[in-house]
Amino acid sequence: MSAHTLPLVSVVLAFLNEERFLEEAIESVLHQEYQNWELLLVDDGSSDRSTAIAQKYAASYPAQIIYCEHAGHVNKGLSASRNEGIRQAKGALIACLDADDVWLPAKLAQQVAIFQRHPGIAMVAEASTYWYSWADATKKDVPISVGAPQDKVYGPAELFSHLYPLSSGAAPCPSGLMLTKDAIARVGGFEESFTKKYALYEDQAFLNKVYLKESVYISSACNNLYRQREGSIVQWVHADGQYHAVRRFFLEWFAAYLQQQQATDPGLEKLLRKALHPYHHPRLHYLTNTLPARLRRILKQSI
C-alpha cells in the first residue's frame, strides 16, 4: 500500500519565539516513518529567528510544509494559533506538536494504525517522556503514562473519573495526541479565552470538551519527548503564586460550559463540586480537609 492511499495527517505546530527548538521539532516530523502528512507552521507573532526558520522549511518542502500567520503578524495566543492551523488543515486526522517538543519516528504510524483498528474513536492519547536529559545528560528522563488503564477505548464522560484536572491520573500532553478533524469541529476547537497565565489550562479546556462528548483511545505507546525547561508557563504560574487562581478560572469556566451544553452526568457533577469546594467554601474546606490532614501528618511524625 503506497503512502498516499493512507489518510492525510495534518500536523499543527504553533510557535512563538522558539528559535532554540523549532528546527528540532520540524525535523522530528520530517523523520516520521509515516509519510502522508502535511505540516502547518503557525507563527503566533514571533519576533526572533523563528519566523525565518519556519519560512525556510516551507520553501524547502513546498509540497508538505505550509507557513501560516495571523493577519498583521499579530500575537493571538496558542489556542487561536492552533485553531488557525486546524482551519487550514486538509487532513482527516490532526496531530498537534508543541514547538519545543520532539516526536520519535513511529509516532504518526502507530496512532494512524489505532484509528484504523477503532474507526469510531475521536482521539488517541499516548504517554509522554518528560525530557530532562536534553539540557543535562546526568538527569534521567521520565516516561509518564496517561493516568487511566491503557490500550482501551473510553466512551463519553468516562475519563473524568481517571484524569487530571478532576481526578488524579496524569493528563496527556498535546504532543501525544491525534484527533479527527470532524471531532475537533464538533467540540468547537481550542478555547481562545485561555491566554496569558490562563494558557496553563488551555489544553485541559479542550481535552475536557473532548472527554465529555467523544470516544477516546488511551495508548500505552510513548513516542513524544516533552521538553522540561526553565521559564515554562507551568513554572511561571506556580512561582508567581497564581496556580489556584488559574485553576479556579478553569473550573468555573467548565461549570458554565456544562450548563451551556445542558450536560447532566451525576458522576461528573460530583467531581466538579469537589474540585470547586476549596474555592467556593474556603473556611469549611480548611476545617474539614486541610486541618485534619495537617493533624494526621503531625501525629504520624511524632510516632
Rank of each mutant, 00 (worst) to 15 (best):
I53A: 02
I53Y: 05
I53K: 07
A54Q: 11
A54C: 09
Q55M: 12
K56F: 10
K56C: 14
K56W: 09
Y57Q: 01
A59G: 09
S60M: 15
Y61E: 06
P62C: 00
A63W: 12
Q64R: 13
I65G: 01
Y67R: 03
E69W: 07
H70R: 07
H70Q: 15
G72Y: 06
H73W: 13
H73E: 09
H73A: 10
H73G: 07
H73S: 08
V74E: 12
N75E: 14
G77N: 02
S79Y: 04
A80S: 09
A80C: 06
N83I: 03
N83P: 11
N83E: 08
N83K: 03
N83C: 06
G85M: 12
G85S: 12
I86H: 05
R87W: 15
R87F: 15
A89K: 05
K90N: 12
G91I: 12
G91Y: 02
G91F: 08
I94R: 03
I94C: 01
A95S: 12
A95L: 10
C96G: 14
L97F: 02
L97G: 04
D100C: 01
D100P: 03
D101W: 01
L104R: 04
A106E: 13
K107E: 08
K107I: 11
L108N: 02
L108V: 07
A109N: 06
A109P: 07
Q110Y: 07
Q111L: 09
V112M: 00
I114Q: 06
I114H: 08
Q116L: 13
